[in-house]
């Protein structure tokens, strides 16, 4: 079974040289730490930065320079700043190659819910609805079950929808799942996790790929 760092490491393997990537808040942000050697990706932050660098040294912290998670960051070489309309312009017009975000629920047809629990929690969608409506490739990074132990991989989302039929892949602590016309297709399982256990923890339609294999993250 993976921890959150393992999930981030596995998603980092999806990165390709030259990709423009938008990483959401939480586990997705960690993906930046595991960009494979020899690959250059440019990270987009929807608050108006293309080319996010590492966190600053303490003396270099700049209140005017943050990422979309409101964390202080630095700029990578060759970066650029822009306003929020242009930022979503590059997202809507399909320039961002990969979007990684978290979710509360994902359905086996690629629907995603991640912005609201009616009557309990209202945080808002931020940029998530724009991203999922336009991005070419969307990977969800999340825990397989919620705090009550219930599956977050469902046949239909029970929470308010963020976007329809948009998720392409889900990576959880248990495995990697492609969204296909026949539901979640398990293509990899985490070390020490059985396919039976994955089936037990998945409420949506689940098929196992013929060539399913153990996940390698290092």
């Amino acid at each position: 079974m993976l921890d959150k760092f393992g999930i981030a490491k596995r998603i980092a393997k999806e990165l390709q040289d030259g990709y423009y990537v938008n990483l959401g808040i939480g586990i997705p942000t960690l993906v930046a730490n595991y960009v494979p050697q020899g690959i250059e990706v440019i990270l987009q932050s929807e608050n108006g930065l293309l080319g996010i660098g590492p966190f600053p040294f303490e003396e270099d912290v700049d209140a005017d320079l943050i990422n979309a998670g409101k964390q202080t960051v630095t700029i990578a070489k060759g970066s650029s700043f822009f306003d929020s309309a242009m930022s979503f312009g590059m997202i809507r017009s399909g320039r961002v190659d990969l979007t990684v975000l978290g979710a509360m629920e994902v359905a086996d047809n690629g629907d995603i819910a991640n912005w609201k629990i009616p009557g309990k929690m209202v945080k808002g969608m931020g940029g998530a609805m724009d991203l999922v409506a336009s991005a070419k490739n969307i990977i969800v990074a999340m825990q397989h079950v919620n705090k009550s132990g219930e599956s977050k991989l469902l046949s239909k989302c029970s929470l308010p929808i963020t976007g329809l039929g948009c998720v392409k892949k889900v990576v959880t602590e248990l495995g990697v799942f492609d969204i296909t016309s026949v539901g979640f297709k398990c293509i990899e399982y985490a070390t020490g996790v059985s396919l039976d256990y994955i089936k037990e923890k998945t409420l949506g339609r689940l098929v196992v790929a013929d060539d399913v294999k153990e996940m390698s993250i290092d």
Partner: peptide
């Protein structure tokens, strides 16, 4: 918001920016 004292309209960030 949850107690109904405040009226709130939540809209996607890109929509907010582009409406401006």
């Amino acid at each position: 918001l949850l107690s109904g004292e405040l009226e709130v309209e939540l809209i996607p960030q890109g929509t907010l920016a582009t409406r401006c």
